[in-house]
Design a protein around this nucleic acid. Sequence first.
DNA 1: ATGTCAATAAATATCGATTTTTTGGAGATT
DNA 2: AATCTCCAAAAAATCGATATTTATTGACAT
Lengths: 220, 220
Amino acid sequence: MNMIDHGSGKEKSATRAAYLSMRDMILKGTLPAGEKIKIENLRKLLDTGASPVREALSLLTSDMLVERIDQRGFRATPASPENFAEILNLRCVLEDMALRQSIANATPDWEERLVLAHHHMNRAVGAEAFEDAHKVFHMTLLSNAAAPMTERYCSQLYDLNIRYRNLAASEVTYKRRDISAEHAQIFDAAIKRNADDASAALLSHYRLTGEYLAQQLSGL
Amino acid sequence: MNMIDHGSGKEKSATRAAYLSMRDMILKGTLPAGEKIKIENLRKLLDTGASPVREALSLLTSDMLVERIDQRGFRATPASPENFAEILNLRCVLEDMALRQSIANATPDWEERLVLAHHHMNRAVGAEAFEDAHKVFHMTLLSNAAAPMTERYCSQLYDLNIRYRNLAASEVTYKRRDISAEHAQIFDAAIKRNADDASAALLSHYRLTGEYLAQQLSGL
DNA sequence: ATGTCAATAAATATCGATTTTTTGGAGATT
DNA sequence: AATCTCCAAAAAATCGATATTTATTGACAT
């Protein structure tokens, strides 16, 4: 998200490997929110040098997953209901803007990418694969806005949100909303280039998840 | 902006010193947009080790002032009219939201801080001091929104905007708008807790500067 | 008991040297 | 003339060791 990676395959640099591992650990809660991160521990855990770990931590700082305290090391960014609420709000504002712009700029190419992303998400097998495809779908919605910074913010915020989702419930008792119907609604409106409907459906999708999570998190 | 700094006085870590210097160099254009940054050069220039330089660069990545290319080092983020336009747009959206929220949460304490910030800005002598006070004033406007991430984004975007301002014209022929009247207008509306007026004045302030700069930048 | 201070331990930050990776170009091949 | 291959120089990434800084502990005075 942070590094401009070209070759898709195997991870080349030690820094990048450490970055991905640690990111995963924070998103999944293996490194709990607010906890001090000791370089030496991580170094051994990831079986790498201190420099890559340190750099990866600096990188994670960009993603707001890690905070740096001058001369005193790093810690996983603390979590709080207020923080969650702010993330949700920012996502609504930024994604609303970007989605409308994407639709305004609609092209056949974008529509095709969207069709594929939607299809892959529906076909995805297993939680892991679904999560990935889900993010791709949401990011594809925004990808035609010609607004790279906005996309970057949205991607960051998406990840932060995932972290809260994992934090709220390990094996989620996903309240039986029909998630895939919600996605279909967003998708259809976007393909029809109906910005108001698409945006309304998207925001409602977020707000529903938001309410549910906020409730789970109340006992923080 | 990025590091949580406590002691105000002398910079403690080499990393922080390097961070501040390089940030300044990029904002001022000493390190031109898009240019490759060679660690060794900077190391010598700043008279410090490679590690602090490297870490400072990672940190600058968070601020979107530097891009990292895996295995291929760093470069100052390229500048473009499109990028400038996106920054302006994001600022308008985010600051509008934050300012309204700040006003909605208005307290005597916030108002006092705002009065002082406004006063200091008017009293500031010299371009350097004015710039600093100007940023403080704008950030103070938003500081009561209880939205730390939004503040962080706005602060980042403010800096990116300054970079473009410096890029557009070294010794600015500041078209004779009455900047201080514009500020007074924003200030007065905020103090009166009139969110609509304050926001309108703020956005107009930004859009005026934006138009002016966009024009200067057209010959990029 | 409580608070202060110094000594010690632990952890971070930094340096200098080494290893990989990329870049640029000379010469070979089509 | 254009393209490819391989080598050398340059740069980035990484490691291991050292220097600084912060955190902890316990003796001592209040």
